[in-house]
């Protein structure tokens, strides 16, 4: 840890070599491997809730990566939005239908080859794109690039249109959620206490 912290402050421009990585770069790579591993486990595990938890590990690892790139604001936004609300939504979604303890053999829809192909293709596209875009450029991490003040000033002066478009996107998302959840029972109040309406069959114990 101390090597990492020491390295963070002493990124000399002279140290630009792939053969002598700094402590920060090593940690960056290690966390990247962890994120990849967690993501793979997340899509291959047969236990639904565990898959969501591995997703938490992967997204949290990404937050650490942002932090190592000194983008503090983005890192904690990642924790707040992805860990704190998106995965909670996923968990609620799982429990909405079913979140059985243990393996769910019927969770596999048989689309594995197609999913693998799509995943591999998008990964290849991203890797090609990123490698091509930043091939040999060196990003100096010592500037105040990741601070909130700078992020705010850039966002609200250079990126006004995307920002306003985002609000429309949020509106659309909410309307979609309402339409999905209220498809049939228009106007009628949900029956109170309908937590256990599916009680027709009971498990063998």
């Amino acid at each position: 840890m101390s090597t990492l912290l020491a390295a963070a402050g002493s990124l000399e421009p002279a140290a630009r070599s792939y053969l002598s990585p700094t402590g920060q770069e090593i940690v960056f790579l290690l966390v990247g491997v962890l994120v990849l591993g967690a993501a793979v486990v997340s899509v291959t595990t047969r236990q639904l809730v565990h898959a969501a938890l591995w997703l938490v590990v992967a997204l949290g690892g990404l937050a650490v990566e942002f932090l190592l790139l000194t983008a503090e604001f983005v890192a904690w936004v990642q924790v707040l939005v992805y860990l704190g609300s998106v995965v909670v939504l996923v968990l609620f979604g799982l429990m909405l239908t079913r979140a059985p303890i243990g393996r769910s053999p019927d969770a596999d829809s048989g689309n594995r080859p197609a999913a693998l192909a799509v995943g591999a293709a998008s990964a290849a596209t991203l890797v090609t794109l990123v490698v091509d875009a930043f091939r040999s450029s060196w990003i100096d991490l010592s500037g105040p690039a990741g601070t909130t003040r700078l992020t705010g000033e850039f966002l609200f002066s250079h990126w006004v249109l995307p920002f306003e478009a985002l609000s429309v996107l949020l509106l659309a998302a909410l309307v979609g959620a309402i339409v999905l959840s209220r498809a049939k029972g228009d106007g009628t109040k949900p029956r109170p206490g309908n937590l256990r309406t599916v009680l027709t069959k009971t498990k063998e114990r």
Binding site: F73, W76, V77, V79, L80, L83, G84, S85, T148
Partner: peptide, 9 residues
């Protein structure tokens, strides 16, 4: 932001 984020974890 850090306090909010840890609370949500």
């Amino acid at each position: 932001l850090y306090i909010l984020a840890t609370a949500s974890v």
